[in-house]
Amino acid sequence: MATITKQKPSNLDKVLSKGRAEVNVATFALLFSEIVQYCQNRVYTVPELQTKLSEMGQHVGSHLLDVLFLREKGYKREIKLLNMLLFIKSSFWKTLFGKEADKLEHANDHEGTYYIIEKDPLVNRFISVPKDKGNLNCAAYTAGILEAVLNGANFPAKVTVHWHKGTTFMIKFDESVITRDKMVDGK
């Protein structure tokens, strides 16, 4: 074409920032509040709202994965389940939320289930849940981020959010992950 189009910048031409940039917590809180309201206007029930928030989170998680591994782990991917979980509890959480997650626990009765417990998740700090939506937990958004990161790193899992000791993220890994991890360990 002969028309002169302006050259759009490509991400690949830019230097990757060190990720130290920060914004005011109020800016984030108000943006998140708008997102919750927007989602709420498009659904009928609390579980639907949480699913919607989780979907938004997954969008974030899938975009964060590469940049995180590149910066924090020097391009190396993680292949062991426990190390992956520890990475999430420490570096990942620290980068995103400025602190490590409070706890990482393994379910007693189910091999493929883990819990990450966070007493006061950032996204919930400015949200007061209305009485008629008692079990709504907007940290479903964080669960979505988590799920996308795990899936992207080839640890297929379902992450759900529960009110327990603050907020508990329940991570249920696909059976294939557990089987594979045993094989890796066996070597």
Binding site: G19, R20, A21, E22, V23, N24, V25, T27, F28, L31, F32, I35, M56, H59, V60, H63, L64, V67, T95, L96, F97, G98, L122
Partner: peptide
Amino acid sequence: KVNGELFTLT
């Protein structure tokens, strides 16, 4: 403060 990338991606 909040991580800028979390904000941007949100």
